[in-house]
Simulated assay, not measured.
Amino acid sequence: MDKRHRIAAAVLAVTALVLGPAQASAAPLGKPKTAHAKKLAAEYLDRAGPLARAVAVEFGIPASVTAGQSILESSWGQSRLAVTDRNFFGFKCLATGPGPIAVACHDYPTTECTPDCHQVQALFRVYDSMLSSFRDYGRVLSTSKNYTAALPLKHDPNAYVTEVAKKYATDPNYAAKVIRIMQENNLYRLDAPLP
């Protein structure tokens, strides 16, 4: 195991020990405004930040993007999908099942924009932990041909998520939403090397 993988494994192991259960109250998507929302956001970033950094080390994905997408997809870890199924990135099941890391599939209503937005039912991946959800995110974005064009842009988080969004979501404003979250919450700080 090379140094990069040893660091990622250590960060993941420590993070797995400190992760607490998700809370079920709602949280805002942009910059938190109320004291309660700020507290929820800080708690979420305390849990998600180290995982996003570990994904950056292991899979080469900007930590700011990982954190931003998880915030948008999970409503700061408060969505039903995140709380019930520990799915922090909105990953759907494959035709063949949940994939190599997820443990099951769960049916939920969702909105698809193709190009008109409408409600549909879809099977979403279920994970045994927040850690597994983040690792699956890193695995998918670093190995799927859908995101190959984003890989050379990893040093520019905004360009990276703009490229990823082309295949990741049907929402035409998806990249702009993630970038807004990254900017308003200074998630770019997660991309700085660890001291």
Score class of each variant (00 low, 15 high):
6 R>W: 05
10 A>R: 09
11 V>R: 04
12 L>R: 04
14 V>E: 09
14 V>I: 14
15 T>Y: 01
17 L>I: 02
18 V>A: 13
20 G>D: 09
20 G>N: 09
21 P>S: 08
24 A>K: 08
27 A>S: 05
29 L>K: 12
32 P>D: 02
36 H>M: 04
37 A>L: 05
37 A>W: 13
39 K>A: 04
40 L>D: 08
41 A>G: 09
41 A>D: 09
45 L>D: 01
47 R>V: 00
52 A>Q: 03
55 V>A: 02
55 V>D: 06
60 G>A: 10
61 I>F: 04
61 I>K: 05
62 P>G: 01
62 P>M: 02
63 A>I: 00
64 S>N: 11
68 G>S: 05
68 G>H: 02
68 G>A: 07
70 S>Y: 09
77 G>V: 00
86 R>C: 09
87 N>Y: 02
89 F>T: 10
90 G>T: 03
93 C>E: 10
93 C>H: 12
94 L>N: 13
96 T>Q: 11
99 G>W: 13
101 I>C: 02
101 I>P: 01
119 Q>E: 15
123 L>W: 06
126 V>S: 12
128 D>C: 11
129 S>V: 00
133 S>F: 00
134 F>E: 01
135 R>K: 14
138 G>Q: 04
139 R>S: 06
140 V>C: 07
141 L>V: 07
143 T>K: 10
146 N>S: 15
147 Y>D: 06
148 T>D: 12
148 T>R: 15
149 A>E: 12
149 A>Y: 12
150 A>F: 05
151 L>K: 15
151 L>C: 02
153 L>P: 01
155 H>M: 11
155 H>Y: 08
158 N>V: 07
158 N>H: 11
161 V>P: 08
162 T>W: 05
165 A>T: 01
165 A>Q: 03
166 K>Q: 14
168 Y>T: 04
169 A>K: 11
169 A>T: 11
170 T>P: 02
172 P>I: 14
174 Y>G: 05
177 K>N: 12
179 I>H: 08
185 N>M: 06
186 N>Q: 10
186 N>H: 14
187 L>K: 01
188 Y>W: 12
188 Y>A: 07
190 L>E: 03
191 D>W: 14
193 P>H: 14
195 P>T: 12
